[in-house]
Design a protein around this nucleic acid. Sequence first.
RNA 1: GCCCGGGUGGCGAAACAGGUAGACGCAAGGGACUUAAAAUCCCUUAGCCCAACGGCUGUGUGGGUUCGAUUCCCACCCCGGGCACCA
Length: 811
Amino acid sequence: MSSNADRYDAQAIESKWQAEWVRRGTNTFTEAEIRAAEDPFYNLMMFPYPSAEGLHIGNIYAFTGADVHGRYWRLRGKTVFEPIGFDAFGIHSENYALKVQTNPNDLIPRNVANFTRQLKRVGGMFDWNHTVDTTAPEYYKWTQWIFLQLYRGGLVERRDGAVNWCPSCKTVLANEQVIAGLCERCDSVVEQRRLPQWYFKISQYAGRLLDNIETLDWSDTTRKSQANWIGRSDGAEVDFAVQGSDATVRIFTTRPDTLFGATYMVLAPEHPLVDAITTDAKRADVERYRDDVAKRDVVDRKKAEKEKSGVFTGGYCINPVNEARIPVWIADYVLMDYGTGAIMAVPGHDERDFEFAQRFGLPIVRVIAAPGATATTPLAEAYAGDGTLVNSGEFDGRSVADGKRAIVESLAARGVAEAKVNYRLHDWCVSRQRYWGPPIPIIYCETHGAVPVPESDLPVVLPRVEDFKPDDSGISPLARVREWYETTCPECGGPARRETDVSDTFLDSAWYFLRYPSSDRDDIAFDPAITRKWLPVHTYIGGNEHAVLHLMYARFVTMALKDLGLIDFEEPFAKFRAHGLIINEGAKMSKSRGNVIVPDSLIEKYGADTVRVYLMFLGPFEQGGDYRDQGIVGPHGFLTRLWQSVLEAQDGAPDAIVEKKLHQTIRQVTQQIPDLGYNTSIAALMEYLNVVRGSGRTARRAEVEPLVVMLAPFAPHIAEELYQRLGHNGGLFDSARWPAFDAAKAAEDAVEIAVQVNGKLRARLVVGVGASEADVKSQAMQLENVARHVGGKTVRKQIYVAGKLLNLVVG
RNA sequence: GCCCGGGUGGCGAAACAGGUAGACGCAAGGGACUUAAAAUCCCUUAGCCCAACGGCUGUGUGGGUUCGAUUCCCACCCCGGGCACCA
């Protein structure tokens, strides 16, 4: 009978060990320890945006999964650095601040404090000595410094551009933040405006960002998303002479093999040559069409389903392959910001061109014949597949691939074409006409133009502004703070004005992993020796929603810093894994549905350890899981039974069967945890405890102690407590070793053989491990059920898989 | 339309490398303990047929390869996510 004091009291144990870890400095490093660390392992997780609602179950799921990983490697002997911080700048925070009419300077620290409390309560192995808050001047000083480094490297440019403008957020959005024409934050229809903006020239790195993907230990999904986003297409640029003029129109195509099928051309309505090509007779039509398009918003324009529209310019170009005269149209299905803003239209082999040609009665010519088709087989729809060139003069009979090469070669020899690779990746617009971000460190001087703020003047502190509401002037709220933006030119001392835009939040998070280990230093962004020791990050765990943007930007900044000689690696995250999503009773969680799980009350009821184990047990970590209220009692019961078994455990040799199971469990768990196989690891630990407790026997210490250690990554508090009660005073995470696996002890001496007749299971047979095939067969034939199904017929064939199965094929 | 995930008991899920489908957990049913309940412990639990031995069916659908397919191949359906007139 257990006394009251011996009941599993999660709350008491958890607060005891959280305090104890702080007292012992278990989870935190000093700067000296960071520098001296042996076998370092940088375990990174995506830092949260500290919302007013506090941590949600999805955050806890993600952090716990990453924490399990870190704790495991620590027990395996690595020095694990596991930092956490706050991504607290940005539109998200600012919009919320506007909504509740509180200054973000007051709001964010409260949220950060609340998050910190919750994060501590969950029992993460976080190094609170090395945290970052992107809104702290000590941090964004270095964000501004990064901007200046890229500027110095020629990777930053201010230019006028058509930018995506969100009328609701009242700011410019990067292309990546526009989802199907809508603002990713507020779903408003995005408009286009022309404004001067700061750009990072990420597109210069497109090829490298793409090529490096192969070298990364990232999940396929994430790698594919990155590759798709970069969007490489191999093709050619070809010059078409404008009839009756010296001008040429340069087009981009991925199908130079279909040049003979080009029956017209299309320019984007904004294309600079439109005016020159348009004839007087058509000028009015063209003007009208361009006005129409300009009025239409981007959503409309980018909608694929929309019926094609366009207008004939009256002008013609000459197809360089056959001197054919083809009409030039303008249409909004051709976009100015991709390729050259002009295409040759091959309706026979491009779906969009086909649709357009049908609508406007333009000729459709077949130049590719699929097997079974000939040059004269009519086209009922565009044929984009493989085949042989036809109606293509001297190139007839070539394959698509061969034709591409040959035609480009032949045109290149005449100087009217060149092979060309295009990427969809656009330059990164980092300007935001908002308040809540790091001011871009640039000063405008009447004589010197845009001048970077000298590094010694950093940070450019974001002033506290009470009226931080953006308006639709397209100018940042900081432009209303005269005493802030009025300054002097760093070059000449003359009157000057600060840049009043702030930078994109994604810049804050594009380098934070460099800051963590060096956050003791206030004189440098990242210490070279520390950075060499700890980076690249060993494992990075985070959400799939950042598979494209955040990861791409972080890779770009890292690559750029390497090229600037500031670091010596160019990929920041050696291994990245995305966790899945938690849903609730089969439904997505959302405030509007009212089914958001509140972690605080769960932790209060069952303790953090139970919540951690349950979350990790729900399903495969990379796939997410379905949270069900009822389910949590399972893991809670498991911890309670473990508690009991350990407390009543006796000395003495472990039972042989239990010991065998123990080593099998060690093998499985040791293998699976690094691959994030948490649900099956926990199942294995449960199974092992069931064996230990089998038929009501009392556990031996030697049986349960390794279990306690293996459970520690999942349930660190109860594990510490039990480890102490088993007689160790050094602290589990400070002194315990991961249990060693002994193959000899895990080996089975008998195996169960499945006996099949004609592939159907008819019996199971237990034999010694070394049993021979003949032995197994003769024993099997004696089994009544087997004999009956063989039924005296001859065994035509037998398949024997040692230790697994015997299949007798009878005829 | 394209690119990823995924589809297995009442539910969440397991199944290494083509070899005994359903581990582990929840729920449900039965039992023990209890005055009773809670808690705890034990047993049963894919469906159908059978008194039992045992048999048949079964991993989204339809084909195929194989002695043997949740696993490999082909075609398709459904769910979730991402991209989407990118030439």
